[in-house]
Amino acid sequence: MNARSPIKAETLKSVSAELAGQPISSEKAAAHAEIFENIMQMIETLRELPIKDVEPAVIFRPVERDGEDSA
Protein backbone atom coordinates (compact mmCIF):
# COMPACT_ATOMS: atom_id res chain seq x y z
CA MET A 1 0.00 0.00 0.00
CA ASN A 2 1.27 3.48 -0.79
CA ALA A 3 2.13 5.60 2.22
CA ARG A 4 -0.02 8.65 2.72
CA SER A 5 1.04 12.04 4.09
CA PRO A 6 -0.81 13.60 7.02
CA ILE A 7 -3.68 15.78 5.89
CA LYS A 8 -2.96 19.51 5.80
CA ALA A 9 -5.51 22.27 6.27
CA GLU A 10 -4.40 24.00 3.09
CA THR A 11 -5.03 20.81 1.11
CA LEU A 12 -8.62 20.62 2.33
CA LYS A 13 -9.13 24.32 1.68
CA SER A 14 -7.97 23.81 -1.91
CA VAL A 15 -10.11 20.70 -2.41
CA SER A 16 -13.18 22.52 -1.10
CA ALA A 17 -12.68 25.49 -3.38
CA GLU A 18 -11.05 23.98 -6.44
CA LEU A 19 -12.65 20.53 -6.67
CA ALA A 20 -15.91 20.72 -4.72
CA GLY A 21 -16.73 24.33 -5.56
CA GLN A 22 -17.57 25.01 -1.92
CA PRO A 23 -14.92 27.33 -0.47
CA ILE A 24 -14.27 27.26 3.28
CA SER A 25 -12.35 29.52 5.64
CA SER A 26 -8.84 28.76 6.88
CA GLU A 27 -10.21 28.24 10.38
CA LYS A 28 -12.73 25.72 9.18
CA ALA A 29 -10.11 23.97 7.07
CA ALA A 30 -7.89 23.61 10.13
CA ALA A 31 -10.74 22.08 12.12
CA HIS A 32 -11.61 19.76 9.25
CA ALA A 33 -8.01 18.61 8.92
CA GLU A 34 -7.89 17.40 12.51
CA ILE A 35 -11.19 15.53 12.21
CA PHE A 36 -10.60 14.13 8.75
CA GLU A 37 -7.12 12.84 9.63
CA ASN A 38 -8.81 10.58 12.21
CA ILE A 39 -11.43 9.51 9.69
CA MET A 40 -8.79 8.90 7.04
CA GLN A 41 -6.90 6.61 9.40
CA MET A 42 -10.07 4.48 9.55
CA ILE A 43 -10.73 4.68 5.84
CA GLU A 44 -7.25 3.66 4.72
CA THR A 45 -7.62 0.32 6.52
CA LEU A 46 -10.03 -0.63 3.74
CA ARG A 47 -7.17 -0.39 1.26
CA GLU A 48 -5.50 -3.36 2.95
CA LEU A 49 -8.43 -5.75 2.50
CA PRO A 50 -8.28 -8.77 0.16
CA ILE A 51 -10.66 -7.20 -2.36
CA LYS A 52 -8.61 -7.39 -5.56
CA ASP A 53 -11.17 -9.63 -7.27
CA VAL A 54 -14.26 -8.39 -5.44
CA GLU A 55 -16.79 -6.27 -7.29
CA PRO A 56 -18.38 -3.30 -5.54
CA ALA A 57 -21.88 -3.78 -4.18
CA VAL A 58 -23.50 -1.03 -6.21
CA ILE A 59 -26.79 -1.42 -7.99
CA PHE A 60 -27.35 -0.40 -11.57
CA ARG A 61 -30.52 -1.04 -13.50
CA PRO A 62 -31.08 0.09 -17.08
CA VAL A 63 -33.85 2.62 -17.36
CA GLU A 64 -36.96 1.35 -19.12
CA ARG A 65 -39.37 4.13 -19.95
CA ASP A 66 -42.42 1.85 -20.01
CA GLY A 67 -41.81 0.61 -16.50
CA GLU A 68 -40.72 4.07 -15.32
CA ASP A 69 -37.80 2.41 -13.54
CA SER A 70 -36.22 5.15 -11.49
CA ALA A 71 -32.75 3.61 -11.17
Binding site: V15, I24, F36, R47, V54, P56, A57
Partner: peptide, 26 residues
Amino acid sequence: RLFLELGNYVLAKDYLHAQRYRTLLG
Protein backbone atom coordinates in the same frame (compact mmCIF):
# COMPACT_ATOMS: atom_id res chain seq x y z
CA ARG B 1 -23.18 20.55 8.06
CA LEU B 2 -19.80 19.33 9.32
CA PHE B 3 -20.47 15.80 8.04
CA LEU B 4 -21.63 17.17 4.69
CA GLU B 5 -18.48 19.27 4.33
CA LEU B 6 -16.22 16.35 5.29
CA GLY B 7 -17.77 14.31 2.49
CA ASN B 8 -16.01 16.52 -0.04
CA TYR B 9 -12.68 14.96 0.89
CA VAL B 10 -13.45 11.26 0.31
CA LEU B 11 -11.76 9.74 -2.72
CA ALA B 12 -13.81 7.78 -5.24
CA LYS B 13 -11.47 4.81 -4.87
CA ASP B 14 -12.16 4.66 -1.13
CA TYR B 15 -15.89 4.77 -1.78
CA LEU B 16 -15.49 1.79 -4.07
CA HIS B 17 -13.24 0.00 -1.59
CA ALA B 18 -16.09 0.38 0.91
CA GLN B 19 -18.59 -1.03 -1.57
CA ARG B 20 -16.25 -3.93 -2.34
CA TYR B 21 -15.89 -4.55 1.39
CA ARG B 22 -19.67 -4.91 1.58
CA THR B 23 -19.45 -7.80 -0.87
CA LEU B 24 -16.69 -9.34 1.21
CA LEU B 25 -18.68 -8.97 4.44
CA GLY B 26 -21.79 -10.26 2.71
